[in-house]
Every structure is written in C-alpha cells, then in structure tokens.
Design a protein around this nucleic acid. Structure first.
Lengths: 251, 251
DNA sequence: TGACATTATTAGTCGTATTTAATTATATTA
DNA sequence: TAATATAATTAAATACGACTAATAATGTCA
C-alpha cells in the first residue's frame, strides 16, 4: 500500500488504461505485446498492481481498473500526452518520434517541471505578442536543415576543451600535483605518485625510479601522442596514455 | 566492447570527467561522494568502464579518461548542460532544480531530440522577431502564480473523461462485447464471459447461470455505485466493481 | 621502519525487472 | 466428449545497480 509506484509499473498501468479504453477489458497477452515484454512479466506486474489496489485482477480473469487505478493512470497518460504535445508543437518533432521520446522521458520528470512544459506549450499557442508567427519560423527552420546531431558534435568538443584549457592554466600555476601527460616541453618536476601496475610504472620501477625522482619533459610529438622525458640518466619515450598514470609536482 | 553504456555508467563517466577537470585525477572516494553511492559501487563501475575502454584503471591506482572515455564523457556533459540550459533559459526553472532534473532526463533523451532542445534555446535567444521580449513575459508569468501543479490536476481528469465518453459511445453502437458495469437501464444482452473466481461470478454460477444467459439492466443507482439486473427469474443488485467482471453482448 | 588511520577492494546479499522452460487453465475443433 | 491449440501461470535463472561487512592496500606519523 505504501511503496511508491515505479516507472515500469506506471508503464503497465498506462498500457492497461489504453487497452481498456479500446476493448473494455485488457488481456495479459495484449499488454505484453504493447510493451514488448513476455507473458510472465505481465503476470507479475498485474499481481503487483492488484495488490496495491490499482486494478481488478484474478488469474485467468478479466482485468479492469479500479477507481484509484484509473485516477493514477490518467495522471500518467496526462504526463505522456503533455510531453508529446510539447515535443510536437513547440520543438516540431515528428509525431512518432515524439511519442517514443515521451515514453522514456515521462518517468524522469518531476511534476513541477512537467507543469512548466505544459504552460510553455500553452504560452506558445496563446501569447498575444506573436500568435505563433515566431514559432512557425522555428519549425520551418528545423525542417530545412536536417543536420541535427551532426553539425554540433564536432564543435562541442572544442568548446569544452576551451573551458578545460582555462582550468588547466589555473592548475598549472598552482602547486597541485599535475599529470605528466599534460605537461609541455621544458617542464621540470618531481614524481608525486606513480602506478606500479601499469606497463610504464613497471618499467620505471625496474629502473629503480620511485616517488620523488626529478623528471623533465623534452619533447611532445606532432599529434600529441608521445611524450619524451628525461629522468635520472635515462631518456624515455612514453605514450600519453602511459603518462596519464604519473603525477608530478612542478619545481 | 559491444554492449551499450547504461544510464548509471554514464553518470559515473560524467562524474569522473568532472573530477578529472578539477583534480587531474579521480579517486573512488570522491566519485562515490559526488554520486551519493558507496565505495564498492564505485569500484564495480570503474571496472566496467575500464573493461569497456572508457578509463584507465588498475586497482589502487590513478583513474583517468581514455580518448574514447573523454569523447563519451563530453557528450554526456553536453547533454546535461544543454538540458539545464534549456530548462533555465526557456522554461524559467530555478537553477538548482534544473540541474537535478537534467540529471534524470539526460539518460532518456535521444540525440536528435536533444539537438532540438539546443536549437530551440538558441532560437529563443536569437530570433530577430522578438529578441527575448516575448519569452521574458513567460518567465515573469511563471514566477507570478506559483500554482504549477495544483490548478491543472483537476481539469485533466475531465478532459480525458470526455475523450473516453466519445470512444464509449462508438463502442456501444457496435457489437463488441461490453462490460456490464458500463451499461444503462433498459440494456438487454447475453453474457459473453464471466469470472468464476469473483464473488458475483460464484453467486451466478451457484444459480446455474453461465455464458449465454440473457441479462437485463433494470436500474443504476444515484452515484453509480450499484447496478440492478434481472437474469432468468432472479433480480440481483451488484456493485459496479463486481459488474466490471462480466462481459455482455448486446441484443 | 612499524603502527595506525584512511581508502579501496572483494565477497556476499537484496530488490527490481526481466527472461526461459515447464505447467496449468481455457477455448476451439473434430 | 476427447484432442488439440492458445493463453496464462508458476518456477527458476539472469542481469543490473545498489548495499553491508570483511579484507587488503596505501599513506602518514612517530
């Protein structure tokens, strides 16, 4: 009675509601088909829903919603429809795609934010200042360039990298241990920590090199894949991935 | 290598990325604290991420992102930020709430629809026709009436009921089996199916009444809780919930 | 270096949601 | 009415994501 309804139980309830709308009564087979699950999953879900007072259910008998179940189902259906509505009317997403997306989103949306979505969709329709004119432009624009995910995937990396570079600089200036991987030629520092289990860690260990040894970066090659260091009497060439396991304190 | 990354693994990856941004290196304890999970959960997640090539990880050693991991993490971070951005700038959701909501939503959003969200947020900022004027109105409106979820919960039931009524009528007109529960006084039909396990089903069974018997609805009481029927020589009064288990074919 | 506190890992368990395989109930047909 | 087909059930198994308790590794301080 007290446990909260889970996302998947909401799905079952919603499906029962929709099938009851159409056929008066829901049968496990149809529920399973609608949700893409097998019979036993449905049986279990129905028993849970019955135990918690959402449906009338007895083995081999007809399945219908209780008052409580109908109310709960309507809330779920409402969420679903509101989201789909938003996606279609505001974001100009294609109907089928919007429906599928709404299915996944509906369980992750808090009631308050759901209301915002609804209000916004209404607002777009009724705002006296532009009466949809402005938003039609958006829909049109969306349908013109179908590039969607492609044209932004590349630039995002760069923009995030920029943020990172900035932070990097700040850290470099400080005295915090840094990763050898990120150091530039001319850097000089002391090993703060190294991983004995990694290949490079073992190589260094075998040479008797441990925490505290002074290390110098000599060269970083073209694509940034290799880094050449000098340590004690040795000159070593490391892959950046190896260098990711060594922390250094700048001197 | 082939299995898809799950929602929670994305969370771990995102967290590792963010901690690496700040401290060069991520430690299990901090990851756990950031995600609100215990140590062992982190260990398991890290092993999965390492097995699938997202991070460099060996027990007790430093954790850093691989190339693949960094790329994947950036995608996740981008999703998160884009969603939060949308919620804050377009839907005028309060920053902290938006951040939490974005956490939950980000795993349920397809790339294509995510792009729509981003495009729309940009559109709102740059649309030359209103230059934000119109959307400020929405934000203002949201902050005026804090009613959000309350004022709509009631009407939704009604609107859904309307849809249902319409479908109901259509079905009633046809010859499909209907639920006795939904029949009105004067209805005459034949029992199509009944549940022997329910109390009313047993009562009827005991009277020797089975599928095919002719049934007549005499009266439906006030609040619609009871339904009076005539069957063979008997007059019976049923609760609607009982009547939900009997299907009838109209004559 | 040794003892201690901190942190990380392993092993075992729980709850949810699903599956397959085998069983039982109902419906259909000869 | 018996034989068969369809559907629903139970039981046992798998996967995932989290937990607790016990064990092991590491870093620190005297």
């Amino acid at each position: 009675m007290s446990e909260a309804i889970s996302g998947s139980m909401e799905d079952y309830l919603e499906t029962v509601y929709q099938i009851v709308q159409e056929h008066q009564v829901a049968r496990p087979k149809d529920i399973g088909k609608a949700l893409g699950v097998t019979g036993p999953s449905v049986t279990k879900a129905l028993r849970w829903l019955a135990d918690h007072g959402f449906i009338h259910y007895a083995p081999f008998e007809l399945v219908t919603l209780t008052e409580k179940g109908e109310k709960a189902a309507k809330q779920v259906v409402r969420k679903h429809e509101a989201l789909r509505d938003f996606l279609v009317r505001v974001l100009a997403v294609e109907a089928k795609e919007a429906d599928e997306a709404a299915c996944k989103l509906e369980h992750a949306l808090s009631p308050d934010i759901l209301e915002r979505f609804i209000q916004y969709a209404d607002f777009v329709d009724t705002c006296p200042r532009n009466r949809g004119k402005c938003f039609e432009r958006f829909a049109w624009h969306c349908n013109q360039n179908q590039t969607t995910s492609d044209n932004c995937e590349t630039c995002v990396g760069e923009s995030l990298d920029n943020v990172r570079q900035k932070k990097q600089k700040k850290d470099d200036a400080g005295t915090k241990p840094a990763l050898l991987k990120n150091m530039l030629p001319g850097f000089k520092g002391r090993i703060a920590q190294l991983s004995h289990r990694t290949s490079i860690g073992q190589r260094l260990s075998e040479m008797g090199i441990e925490t505290g040894a002074v290390i110098e970066v000599e060269k970083v090659t073209g694509e940034g894949d290799m880094i050449q260091i000098k340590i004690k009497a040795y000159h070593l060439s490391l892959r950046k991935e190896e260098a990711a396991h060594i922390r250094v304190n700048p001197l």
